[in-house]
Design a protein around this nucleic acid. Structure first.
Length: 616
RNA sequence: GCCGGCGUAGCUCAGUGGUAGAGCAGCUGAUUCGUAAUCAGCAGGUCGUCGGUUCAAUCCCGACCGCCGGCUCCA
């Protein structure tokens, strides 16, 4: 008996698209093994969605092969919200091609063609894909002697499966866009043409997904950055170089002030360092060996080469080394909002999230070995406090291990990795290991924040460095009177102010909480007869330390309200005839909520209550 | 950097082988008005840059610059 027959018997044949047999997800055409436990996989299950999406990818590949027989097929996996399939074609697909492909796909779905699983020996399988070199390459990498194939109409693909029983079972889908993608994700390989598609069990889910994509566009920090006049990137200045407009700068200043205050409180010493240094400094640090491709070209000055800094660490080390250090002084914590410049490939630049000049909220800690575990532990605490302050309480934590190109000894790398791991475990934070993602000088803990597109952005980073102290000979005099090498930790909590701000804009959709909002209150006189009173209110608010503006233009109240709302100002204070005569204001919250009239002092109390750091 | 798409007024976008429009924003004037747009008028663009084809290019072709979507790479 096959699973499909069993499904029919149980009345599940109409809903099940696959089955889980003893934990393995398989096609319904498979036989029911003796005594096995069987669970039905529905399109709405996570496993089911993946099968649906992958099967849709096959349908697309079949449609492409029919319409473009010269296209070479490669791979087509299910991804979040859909699928993609990569093709090798001479000329990439146009949007019109996508329409044609999608049309053909719908016909295939309507025809309800069965997916038939076949097995073949590897040698035999090779003969089944004439003119498909990529399938041959995939076969080379398969260890098993027998491979599975799926036939759907005339289309045969090498595939592990499972698939839906027939194309009629595929849900709602839509081809989204094309993109270039390297074969096997390696930039040394040929560039293929990828088609992305969205696929869901129901039309409703697909429509919801498309709606979310629209919402994401609305929250895009590049769009909001222009609309709210926060920042810009100018062609005349250069790509990846940010101009902070007054309103963006106001938010940045608040972020910086908060950062400085909290660092001073947490035992950091604030320092400043220059933007360039002799190229030799970067030779000693190892940057010229390991980081050159990310550095701007050196600048020649009086026959000497100088380098625009890609990192702040060597400067802080020089401060540390400016005199002898005793073990009693440690830990020493130098913090700086240090602006660095990195030559990022042009194709990777992205608004504020990937730029060429950015300010790190950097710090370097110099420690004795016995202080390492405790320092990392308390640093994790401090990091989470800062993130929470800005409204981020969900993040992905990664332990990034040794990359291919690295400096230092294996023993030190292992020591550092285990120190980071121990701190995470002691703190009880769930984390994933990101193999090979460490920086060249040491392993790191990365805390990534997700933006509205679901992309994960590395913001906070805590990196152990055994390399630089060695290269620069950063030492301290220990209790025994001899010099010992210090351990260094690099860390940035917001990461870069640019990126963090960009994520922040999307996180709040530009509607910053009152403590961060560039303008906290708009004071709106109803007619110019109340301009004098409104002006007094503005002065009182400013006098109390709040960021308030008066809108004295000759416009109707509705006009001013609308503008204030569109600027996402937390409060609009209506100051008309009634308010002026009673010495009160009538607040309206950004969302439209109207508050009862109250005196200015009472409103100030309300504001004060809403502008304290929520994480404290 | 690689693949593809795109580049018209400050913004969002029409448009054509015969040197360009709309809405919003801006400016001027009128309106003195209670919770998301008052009305009228005016002004604004070497159609990204450079080169080529053509009697003629914003439109066709090429190069470059930039942006967008991905890939690779990263805070």
């Amino acid at each position: 008996m096959t699973l499909l027959e069993l499904a029919r018997k149980e009345g599940k044949a109409k809903v099940a698209i696959a089955a889980k047999v003893d934990g393995d997800v398989v096609d319904l055409a498979r036989p029911v093994p003796e005594g096995a436990s069987v669970a039905w996989v529905l399109p709405t299950d996570p496993d089911g969605a993946e099968i649906l999406r992958h099967s849709t990818a096959h349908v697309m590949a079949a449609a492409v092969k029919e319409l473009f027989p010269e296209a070479r097929i490669t791979i087509g996996p299910a991804i979040e919200n859909g699928f993609y399939y990569d093709f090798d074609v001479e000329t990439p697909f146009t949007p019109e091609d996508l329409e044609k492909i999608e049309g053909r796909m719908r016909e295939i779905v309507k025809a309800d063609l069965p997916f038939v699983r076949e097995e073949a020996g590897k040698a035999q399988a090779r003969t089944l894909f004439p003119g498909e070199p990529y399938k041959g390459e995939l076969l080379d990498d398969i260890r098993e002697e027998t491979v599975s194939l799926y036939r759907m109409g005339d289309f045969l693909d090498l595939c592990r499966g499972p698939h839906v029983p027939s194309t009629g079972r595929i849900g709602a889908f839509k081809l989204m866009n094309t993109a270039g993608a390297y074969w096997r994700g390696d930039s040394k390989n040929r560039m293929l043409t990828r088609i992305y598609g969205a696929a869901f069990a129901t039309k409703k889910e697909l429509e919801e997904h498309l709606r979310i994509l629209e919402e994401i566009k609305k929250r895009d920090h590049r769009k909001l950055g222009r609309e709210l006049d926060l920042f810009s990137v100018s062609d005349d200045i250069g790509p990846g170089l940010i101009l902070w407009h007054p309103k963006g700068a106001a938010v940045r200043r608040i972020m910086e002030d908060f950062w400085r205050d909290e660092h001073a409180r947490a035992g950091y010493d604030l320092v400043f360092s220059p933007h360039i240094a002799r190229l030799d400094l970067w030779r000693v640090s190892g940057h010229t060996d390991y980081y050159r491709q990310a550095m701007f070209s050196p600048i020649e000055v009086e026959g000497q080469e100088y380098q625009l800094k890609p990192m702040n660490c060597p400067f802080h080390i020089q401060i540390y080394k400016s005199r002898m250090r005793s073990y009693r002084e440690l830990p020493i914590r130098y913090a700086e909002l240090g602006t660095v410049y990195r030559y990022e490939p042009s194709g990777t630049l992205h608004g504020l999230l990937r730029v060429r000049g950015f300010t790190q909220d950097d710090a370097h800690l110099f420690l004795r070995p016995d202080q390492l575990d405790e320092e990392i532990f308390s640093l994790l605490d401090f990091t989470l406090f800062v993130l929470r302050s800005f409204g981020f309480d969900r993040y992905d934590i990664y332990l990034s291990t040794r990359p291919e190109k690295y400096a230092g000894t294996l023993a030190n790398w292992d020591l550092a990795e285990s120190a980071l791991r121990k701190a995470l475990e002691r703190k009880g934070l769930p984390f994933a290991v990101d193999p090979g993602e460490g920086v060249f000088y040491g392993p790191k803990i990365d805390i990534k924040i997700k933006d509205m597109l679901g992309r994960s952005w590395q913001c906070s980073t805590i990196q152990v460095d055994f390399n630089n102290p060695e290269r620069f000979d950063a030492a301290y005099i220990a209790e025994d009177g001899t010099a010992h090498r210090a351990i260094m930790i690099h860390r940035a909590l917001m990461g870069s102010l640019e990126r963090f701000f960009g994520v922040l804009v999307e996180h709040y959709a530009g509607a910053f909480p009152a403590w961060l909002a560039p303008v906290q209150v708009d004071v709106l006189p109803v007619t110019d007869r109340q301009n004098g009173y409104a002006g007094e209110v503005v002065e009182k608010l400013r006098g109390a330390g709040f960021r308030a503006n008066g809108d004295f233009r000759n416009e109707k109240l509705g006009y001013k309200i609308r503008e204030s709302q569109m600027n996402k100002v937390p409060y609009a204070l209506v100051t008309g005839e009634r308010e002026a005569s009673q010495g009160v204001v009538t607040p309206r919250r950004r969302g439209g909520e109207q508050l009862p009239s109250l005196g200015v002092e009472a409103f100030l109390d309300l504001l004060r209550g809403e502008t304290v750091n929520p994480a404290k």
